[in-house]
Design a binder for these strands. Sequence first.
DNA 1: CGGGGCATTGAGTTGAGTCAACAACCGTGG
DNA 2: CCACGGTTGTTGACTCAACTCAATGCCCCG
Lengths: 240, 240
Amino acid sequence: MSHPLIAALEKHGPLTDEEKDVLRQISSRVVSFAPKSEIASEGTLQSESKLLIEGFAIRHVHLEDGDRHISALHIPGDFVDLISFLLKKMDHGVAALTPCKVALVAHSDLLEVTRRYPFLTRAFWLLTLVDAATTRQWLTGLGRKSARQRLAHFLCEMHCRMEAIGMARDESFELPVTQEELGDAQGLTTVHVNRTLQELRADGLIRSSGRTIVISDLQALREEAEFDPAYLHLHQQLER
Amino acid sequence: MSHPLIAALEKHGPLTDEEKDVLRQISSRVVSFAPKSEIASEGTLQSESKLLIEGFAIRHVHLEDGDRHISALHIPGDFVDLISFLLKKMDHGVAALTPCKVALVAHSDLLEVTRRYPFLTRAFWLLTLVDAATTRQWLTGLGRKSARQRLAHFLCEMHCRMEAIGMARDESFELPVTQEELGDAQGLTTVHVNRTLQELRADGLIRSSGRTIVISDLQALREEAEFDPAYLHLHQQLER
DNA sequence: CGGGGCATTGAGTTGAGTCAACAACCGTGG
DNA sequence: CCACGGTTGTTGACTCAACTCAATGCCCCG
């Protein structure tokens, strides 16, 4: 397997050998996290950003009444808290959903990169922009779409992203997320998630057994959800 | 009045004279937009980013059923579509709410800046991160807070941001937004916005006449909303 | 083979939406 | 200076998508 960080950035433009070397150097420290453990806690100061190499993680915040909200689901290759490079204090937490392997990238190294490698800098910046675009997409869903549309949209998004990193086979992929977590992400209760998923199954749009999602009718699901993968900017090219 | 772009970036660290010159040069082209006109349209390619100098603007998307969602409200000093520098194709539109003055910053100039001025590059990047943090905050509101809390939170946020650019006097500020627009932003209907605002007024948290908002009890409003201005990162300093 | 997540189901409730008037405000043209 | 029409704000009556509460079933793992 090629280096996940290099792979992620190369989608947006070819890298020089020197740049690749730099990326390998700054991401060589790898640590593991157990499921449910916090990779970066809300309110803390970070001195390194974390690149998810293996496993799934979420970005979440806790409200006073004990409620939780999940604002992102991260998959391998995601730079889960690149934002903490410039916004030192975490305004949300990041937690492992499954066993995770994470590369620690020191902020001091990132600082050096921004001084010397403008192209890499823009590539990193781009990653945070795509992240933000995804958040906006979720926002629109929560603001104006039905539970059914939101879940459909979420499944389309995950399918697309998993496919992009080679973790979807045909129309099926692993989604190690409970219905409770789905609800916390899409602003729904567990009960309602359950019923809505049943509807999607009954209507022949998806099949799912345990953690495996199979999209039976991608076309129809995307129409339901008004899903257009453009916002993921999977093929956005950067100028040198 | 000092230059709005310089003012915005200097909050995060002192700039050199050279850097200030560059900023002045790249933002010297200023154009006007009438209320309701589109500053940048959804789906189009941009070759310049737009800095709002005067007036209010929104970021919005339209859904198939004719519904609209507003994902941001921009005030003077905001770089409304800095993201289009790297994500050329707009995944949302930006429209003027009031008469607006906008500085056009060519993407080619931004590219040059990223090549030569690492500190400015990081400062620009930071702006997009704060923007994203705000979007996440709205997301959490839509996902897990009541209409009342969301509106309270929105008012706290606007108060804070307006104060930061010197456009709030004491606890009052202008908010040239209709109840319909408020609803489109916070995922509510006009009717419900109306009733909820009345509640906030009745409970002595705010007063409002026309476009002027007066926060009567800032402390109480913030508690209601669980508002913590940290996410606005108004004083986040950047290293050189 | 027993306990702890998860998923599912049923029944009753509610925050927010819908629909439909009506009132207040504001700029414009006569 | 006023009448007019369009936009925005307000109200009332009714509906419904999603929530709450409370069981029950299921499956995996030790």
